[in-house]
Computed example of a mutant assay.
Amino acid sequence: MNNKKISNISVDCVVFGYDTETKSLNVLLIKRYLESKSEKKILVDDYVLTGYHVYENEALDDSASRVLKELTGLTNLYKKQFKAFGDPNRLTNEKDLLWIQNEEFNLRTITIAYYFLLKTDDVSIENNKYQAQWFSINDLPELGFDHKQIILEAYEDLKTKCLQEPIIFELLPDKFTINDVQDLYQSILAIEIDNRNFRRKLINKKYLVPLDEKQVGVSKKPAQLYMFSKDIYNKMFQKNYLINI
């Protein structure tokens, strides 16, 4: 492949992961750090999304998948292209200008934004060369460029999408309880869901398959485990089908 990059077109990837212990929706960010060469003065010290330029002979989806694989080592994950960001002033913050000058980036870069869904346990961030770290969507650090805007717009799209398709199961372990599903919906949508009604509706979904297994290693009464069947869902899928929580 020709790896010559297009200087003013990039992809940025919002990587969402769910922490089942803290019940929080998280975003995977990488460190952006720059010192002055002479005085070793800290010029830039914040976080950004993972992203890079698109190569000349590369499709946009392939660019996003490449960038995601370089950060996490993972492939074949759920991804969605949700918006292009091309405001002429999107990279004109003082710190951004210092970074762009150091990296010799094009000041008028347009980025195509994607978001990915994965299980946090599938990613090892120890000794990650990009100093990747998970942050709660509700407690983001200082961010470079317009990446806070990109994250928040990805989050709004995710809220809508999770009510139209069963994409939340991309964020859960292969085996889960009804409470796990409810906790995740509540985390994404930032709402309280009536437990009884939710359970009644969910267990009637044919694509949710009960297993002959229960939780292990819990202090309370172990709950029934389920798995999501993509095959069953695809067979019953109808246009504009709503999850209806």
Rank of each mutant, 00 (worst) to 15 (best):
I112Q: 12
N138R: 09
L68C: 12
K206L: 15
E35G: 00
L71Q: 10
Y52L: 06
K201M: 10
K220L: 10
L60C: 06
F169R: 05
K214G: 07
V27H: 03
D231V: 10
V15Y: 10
H147I: 02
G73H: 02
Y226Q: 01
N8A: 14
L211Y: 03
E126S: 15
Q101W: 08
L98E: 13
G86H: 04
A59P: 06
K5P: 12
V11T: 13
I150S: 03
V123E: 08
L29R: 01
A190I: 05
K205T: 03
K148C: 06
N89M: 13
K37D: 11
F198E: 06
K159G: 01
N93I: 12
I232G: 10
S219P: 00
S187L: 00
E58A: 06
E142N: 06
I178H: 01
K4P: 02
S38Q: 08
S136E: 12
N179Q: 08
E21L: 15
E170D: 05
V218G: 04
P210M: 14
N128S: 14
S187C: 03
E39V: 06
I125R: 14
N93M: 14
S63N: 14
K5S: 10
K235M: 02
L60R: 07
N204M: 14
L97V: 15
L29T: 05
E94I: 12
V11H: 04
L28I: 09
L202G: 00
